[in-house]
Amino acid sequence: MNLKLHIWRQKNNKAAGAFEQYAVSDISEDMSFLEMLDVLNEDLIVGGKDPVAFDHDCREGICGACSMTINGNPHGPEKATTACQLHMRKFNDGQEIYIEPFKNKSFPVIRDLVVDRSALDRIIESGGYISIKTGSAPDANDIAVPKAKSDVAMDAAACIGCGACVAACPNGAAMLFTSAKLKHLNVLPQGQAEKKKRTIAMVEQMDKEGFGSCTNHYECEAACPKSISVEFISEMNFEYAKARATAYRD
């Protein structure tokens, strides 16, 4: 198939960016979206032009590195699919495709489609862990965790940290990401001791990073490659308010 691509090109964080148009031909429908970009890049390099920079690594939908907005959808049109697992058979011959970086003021562009998502790491650093030092853990079966709770923790922990939720949110909120991590740790017995502190710290770091607020569009859930539920956002709202209301006791 042949495609007309409009790709956001930006030399670095300081430079102004613009869309550039590229025509790619003889694209196999068995290619992944990133392989299609590889083909374009090979041509660009041979032609002495700069290849399109984009983040990617595992190419099997789990590392969370790939991050591009395809025709207005982070990771593209497929449900629960990262850009690296999106295949060209989902597109039509002759289609025009707009490829943009994940857009959010807290995700500054590094080059082309590569953005800096370290704000998400800083949210984790602010409290997204259970403080247990290596070697001091009790026997794993000392703490029984009801299967239902363990399953919910796993649902939340499935987050790959790609930032598509942020990129998809019309308000630029990072609430799905933050709430999923909070839920993962807050639902487990191991996470109880730090629950309140963690909730307050992570939510406030999220605000500090400048992320927006949820107005319940649920675009995040629809864009999430792991279909993480907005239920966690709702719960985070309540838990944060509760933590703030009872903080005086600590």
């Binding site: 247990i132 853990a137 794993a140 703490i143 029984a144 299967k147 363990s150 796993m154 993962h184 191991q190």
Partner: peptide
């Protein structure tokens, strides 16, 4: 020790209905 450590960190290993790993 690895399993103990990971469990204490909150790694959601699969569990039986009784709550054990």
């Amino acid at each position: 020790d690895i399993i103990d450590q990971a469990t204490a960190q909150g790694v959601p290993f699969a569990r039986e209905y009784g709550g054990n790993l």
